[in-house]
């Protein structure tokens, strides 16, 4: 038993390192003072309340929500058929395609952002919202393909053949048999995509423009001007939102099976 204490020490340090910053932000937001500091100067909820009154946060939160929800949905609309095709058909170069699909994860976000800015937004004169939508869809797509693929691999092909022999067209076999049986994976992909998109910084940094900013970018620029604890309060609130989503997913879906 004496040899156990190094294990506990390492575990404790790891948890402190992972959760510590989160706790610091929560308490920094509870400050009664006027500047961002830890430990907080007295306790109050005023910064948590002030967050809701800042106009620009309303717009950027709405934009981030829009991108996270619809960007992820778009990624699923493209990703589910792609995952199906990669799994079920003998496509030449399927492995290469899988690697290519994962590219936005591998390539640093700064490069993706710069490339999209230089070759999508500038020459084609795409609106900023549109560019952000395209970028977020592309960023989430790899997760959609990966997660949906892994649940498709567990689904036997003969189930679709059975459906066809009972009268289904190929499309019906997909919607009536395949889709219901991978819905856990699809939901997991959606949540993973949502969180990824919502927290995305580097690509959005390049594509944000005047008046159109995602939540994290807006928080950055707010901090450059006003160094008060409201940013800490907002961060804490957003973190709670993401944690709540993931926990709910884990509880109802066994989320971690798919990721």
């Amino acid at each position: 038993m004496t040899a156990r204490w190094p294990t506990w020490l390492i575990l404790g340090l790891t948890l402190t390192f992972l959760i510590g910053p989160f706790l610091i932000i929560i308490f920094a937001g509870l400050s009664a003072g006027n500047s961002l500091a830890f430990p907080p100067q007295g306790l109050s909820l005023k910064w948590y309340l002030k967050v809701f009154t800042i106009e620009s946060f309303h717009a950027s939160f709405a934009l981030s929500m829009f991108l996270a929800v619809f960007g992820t949905l778009a990624a699923l609309v493209i990703g589910i058929p792609a995952a199906y095709a990669l799994n079920r058909y003998d496509i030449p170069g399927a492995e290469t395609i899988k690697t290519a699909v994962a590219a936005p994860i591998i390539v640093p976000g700064i490069i993706v952002g710069l490339a999209l800015l230089r070759y999508l937004v500038v020459p084609l004169d795409v609106t900023i919202t549109m560019a952000l939508f395209v970028a977020h869809t592309a960023l989430v797509l790899p997760y959609a393909v990966r997660v949906v693929s892994s649940s498709l691999q567990n689904l036997r092909v003969d189930m679709e053949e059975a459906a066809i022999l009972l009268g289904c067209t190929r499309l019906q076999a997909f919607t009536k048999v395949v889709l219901p049986n991978i819905r856990g994976g699809v939901l997991a992909a959606f949540i993973l995509g949502f969180v990824t998109s919502f927290n995305e910084v580097p690509v959005s940094l390049f594509l944000s423009g005047p008046g159109v900013r995602t939540m994290p970018i807006d928080m950055l620029s707010y901090m450059e001007i006003t160094y008060d604890p409201s940013v800490a309060a907002l961060s804490a609130l957003l973190a709670f939102m993401c944690v709540a989503i993931v926990f709910t997913a884990e509880k109802f879906l066994g989320f971690s099976r798919y990721v």
């Binding site: 003969d158 189930m159 053949e161 022999l165 219901p180 049986n181």
Partner: peptide, 15 residues
């Protein structure tokens, strides 16, 4: 899907 033939798969292939 239009032949009207039944097939019981070795793995049963139930939904």
């Amino acid at each position: 899907n239009k032949r009207g033939i039944g097939l019981v798969f070795q793995s049963y292939a139930l939904f």
